[in-house]
Structure formats: structure tokens, C-alpha cells
């Protein structure tokens, strides 16, 4: 299991990886959570994927995508500011070069539930650790995100607590909220320890098979 970061200029050489990521997102967000997202074939993709996002992904040794998250600068359009502004409850939308917005965080619970060795939490911790390492790498200080209370609990238990912007509100079938995740050295060490990995967490994306 390892983590990678894919920047928009690397999309062409990572078609397989992107496809698998969009496929996982479809299974999670469309099929399981039943969000009204646009899907095609077996993939999910939305307008925010067109804004040159960066993606972080956790891959299995067989190069399956086990989890992924999308990161966008808050200086452009954001899900929190443009779609879920009600979750700000009047607070101003952070627009800062050093704050990124994460969205579409997901882990392949189905595939990982079968592995007996705590694979699910390991992939989750690894993806969290990758997010902190990415903040450091880009000299950013925080992530702002729209999430739900279930995920907030997972983050707290993992030792990387969410700083709430406003209290949770019902949204669809969940209690949604917006909050900050700060670049935090002790959280990073705790996550690495729990995921049994060492820094640097992020490797280079997979090389093209036919190269």
C-alpha cells in the first residue's frame, strides 16, 4: 500500500489511475451514498474536476485505488463557498493561497473490509497523512472541507481533529459540517505510526505500464 499525488499536468500519463479513482468515487458517492452526482459509464466526475485539482490516492500493491481525495485552492471556486455556503452559517469563506479545500474523500470500504489486517483504517490513516504531507510540500497551512459528523469522529479518533466553522446541519441523509484541518506535526507522526509508514508518504504516480 502506498500514497501518490497526481497534479493536473500529469493527468495524461495517469489515465488508468484517474479512471480507477473516478470509478471508486462513483461506487461510493453515487451507488452507496446516493448523491445526485453526474455519472458516465462506471465513473463519477463533476465541474470541480475541471479546475485543475490535485488528487491524492492510496494504491494497493496491485495498483488498485483504495482511497482518494481531491484538493483545490480556495482562491478559486470551492464546494464550500459555491455549493454548501449554508454550512458557513454566515462566517466568511476562507480565500487564501495557503488554504486548500479537500472534497470527495473516500476509501474503498468494500475492498478493504475483506482484508483482515485492519486495511481499512490503514488506508484511511495513510490518506490523512498524505494530506498533511501535501500541505507541507505546497507550503500551505490548512485544509478547509465539507464533511459529516461520522467523518469528524473518525478524524478525532485518528488524532487529527476537525476545527468546526459552524455547528452541523442536516444535509440529505447526514449531518454535514464545514471545518478546518491544520498542518500539524504531532498529528502527522501519530498517523504515520498508526498506518505503519514513514515519511515521505507520497511517492511518484505509477509509471505507464507499456513504457
Amino acid at each position: 500500500m502506498h500514497a501518490v499525488a497526481i497534479e493536473s499536468h500529469q493527468f495524461g500519463e495517469n489515465v488508468d489511475l484517474l479512471t480507477r479513482m473516478y470509478q471508486l468515487r462513483r461506487r461510493i458517492f453515487h451507488d452507496r451514498l446516493e448523491w445526485d452526482v453526474s455519472v458516465s459509464n462506471d465513473m463519477e466526475l463533476d465541474v470541480f474536476d475541471t479546475l485543475s485539482p490535485s488528487y491524492l490516492a492510496v494504491l494497493s500493491d496491485r495498483k488498485e485505488v483504495l482511497g482518494c481525495v481531491r484538493l483545490l485552492p480556495t482562491t478559486g471556486p470551492t464546494m464550500l463557498g459555491d455549493v454548501f455556503a449554508s454550512l458557513l452559517a454566515g462566517a466568511p469563506m476562507p480565500r487564501d493561497r495557503r488554504i486548500l479545500e479537500s472534497s470527495r474523500f473516500c476509501v474503498d470500504t468494500q475492498r478493504l473490509a475483506d482484508t483482515s489486517t485492519g486495511g481499512l483504517s490503514r488506508a484511511t490513516f495513510m490518506l490523512f497523512a498524505a494530506m498533511i504531507e501535501y500541505l507541507r510540500r505546497t507550503e500551505s497551512c490548512s485544509i478547509v472541507t465539507v464533511t459529516d459528523v461520522r467523518m469528524e469522529r473518525i478524524l478525532r479518533r485518528a488524532g487529527w481533529p476537525l476545527q468546526r466553522i459552524a455547528p452541523p446541519r442536516p444535509l440529505g441523509r447526514t449531518m454535514a459540517l464545514a471545518g478546518y484541518l491544520h498542518c500539524n506535526d504531532s498529528a502527522f507522526s501519530a498517523l504515520c505510526r498508526q498506518a505503519d509508514i514513514s515519511s515521505p508518504v507520497l511517492g511518484i504516480p505509477m509509471e505507464s505500464e507499456q513504457a
Binding site: V15, L18, T19, S38, S40, N41, L45, V47, D49, T50
Partner: peptide, 9 residues
């Protein structure tokens, strides 16, 4: 598939 989806998005 990706071209179609990117175009649409």
C-alpha cells in the same frame, strides 16, 4: 470515455 466526461464537465 474520459474525453467525453471532461468535455461535459
Amino acid at each position: 470515455q474520459l474525453i467525453a466526461f471532461y468535455f461535459h464537465a
